[in-house]
Design a binder for these strands. Sequence first.
DNA 1: CGTTGCATAGCAACTCGTTGCATAGTACGG
DNA 2: CCGTACTATGCAACGAGTTGCTATGCAACG
Lengths: 180, 180
Amino acid sequence: MALEHAILVSLAEKSASGYDLARRFDASIGHFWKASHQQIYKVLGRMESDKWVEAHLVEQSGRPDKKVYAITGEGRAELMRWSSTPTPIETYRSEFAVKLRGLRFGDRDAVLSDVRARREAHVAQLAYYEASAAKHYPDPSAVGDDELGAYLVLRAGFMQEQTGIAWCDEILQAFGVAER
Amino acid sequence: MALEHAILVSLAEKSASGYDLARRFDASIGHFWKASHQQIYKVLGRMESDKWVEAHLVEQSGRPDKKVYAITGEGRAELMRWSSTPTPIETYRSEFAVKLRGLRFGDRDAVLSDVRARREAHVAQLAYYEASAAKHYPDPSAVGDDELGAYLVLRAGFMQEQTGIAWCDEILQAFGVAER
DNA sequence: CGTTGCATAGCAACTCGTTGCATAGTACGG
DNA sequence: CCGTACTATGCAACGAGTTGCTATGCAACG
């Protein structure tokens, strides 16, 4: 139910083609809401029927034509309506946690490799967030009203990666394989 | 793909009926993998055809009969096989983060209520984990091998709730509405 | 005596998301 | 010139999960 709204937010910031959106979902917005291009095209179609967005064709030279979508007044109204309804608390769902929980019925070494891989992924993602923060918000105390939402979301990502790393370290320690 | 395995882990710990499993998924295991009873029954049926579990009917007095499921050798083998394949990194997906990101197109007060509600939920969940830890693992340094997985998962829950609270507090502060 | 709640098991319809595939033009390296 | 990669859009089939409904029997509440 929220991909529509993630797209609306993205289009409210800046009009874009399906392809552009797919790339945004690979980059910034996608850090907390993933979507494949197939699904984005599908949902864009529905949103166009619902009049939340409208498309106009842009002819390009040297490239395929594209359909650039822009949010409509109705789309903005929907965004506001959605924003003012309470958000259900999302359920944390982790296959890895299940695996860890079943550790005694499983393969300790494989889980260990998993932990190491996850730790690396967390470290990389943390670095990404750090760079992003340094670039866009060099002075956190001077974040403007317009950027506040995006900034706070970035902070969440940052904190979550830190927590992820700390958890991995705790697991490694418990396994008697301390990180260096 | 992982509900099967969550059920296998649960049944490896202790045989149970669909109803029992549903309650477990409301309690311990469900903190990191939710499932409704409808889905559990459906998957149990498939797992029985796959010979990962086997059921025998238990007649009860004063209550409806129940089908108690036990994990089979094949089920245990599958659990081991699954455990030794790498776990894909799960994508963090948060409707609330999307909403926050789109704050400037939305309703600030509604988001604020959301934050407060989320904070309360995190505090409650943290208290639950804390109580659970105090009860089951009074001495963290003495956690046995059999309990290690469950303990580490509990730790993850604990740390995540802490992070969640810290994030909420940061949002409240940024909104100029500090928590007391 | 009626209602609510718990224990127990399921089906049907639907939505959301993934996987795999198709198509088409351009650019670039070898 | 051939293969690969990028820009750009989409369909079809499937799988996972949710919502809503059905059914039965007992216990407890009011």
